[in-house]
């Protein structure tokens, strides 16, 4: 169950693509972290991720988990953004058989799912062909 509190905590990342950039080595972490996995630095500045990137790998989900039961089939990929950060995201506004590795994409703000019987709408990023 996705609670309102759990949802609210991730809003800066999901709505605004906020990430943490290590002040010592420059590595960008999405979501932000408290300690750098690369240099152990503990000071970060908040940066916004690039909204442009390319598909590294992808799949089409045909057997969905319960919260996405009505959505299948849908495409999900790992996208590498221009700042080098990789994210898992749905690939939409594109025919499923037209998706290719290396395809340029752009991040857009979309509805992700409708949670529970109350039908609370959950938002976040998806990517579309650039």
């Amino acid at each position: 169950m996705l609670t309102a509190q759990r949802y609210a905590r991730e809003i800066p990342q999901r709505y605004r693509l906020e990430a943490g950039k290590c002040k010592k080595c420059g590595e960008i972490f999405f979501p932000p972290r408290l300690i750098c996995a690369k240099c152990k630095g503990r000071e970060f500045e908040t940066v916004k991720l690039s909204d442009e990137g390319k598909v590294i790998t992808y799949t089409v989900i045909r057997v969905p988990p319960t919260p996405f039961a009505d959505e299948a089939p849908y495409a999900i990929g790992i996208v590498e953004l221009k700042d080098g950060v990789r994210i898992t995201t749905q690939i939409v506004d594109c025919e499923l058989d037209k998706i290719k590795v290396g395809m340029p994409v752009r991040i857009e703000f979309r509805k992700i799912l409708q949670e529970g019987s109350a039908g609370i709408l959950c938002y976040g990023y998806k990517c579309v062909p650039a």
């Binding site: 799949t59 995201t89 992700i112």
Partner: peptide
Amino acid sequence: QEYEVYHGITFPGLYALIARAHME
């Protein structure tokens, strides 16, 4: 949970991402 599953990925889906990458 927040950065993979939230977007609708499943376990077969994650290994499918690996499979596609291995094929490429």
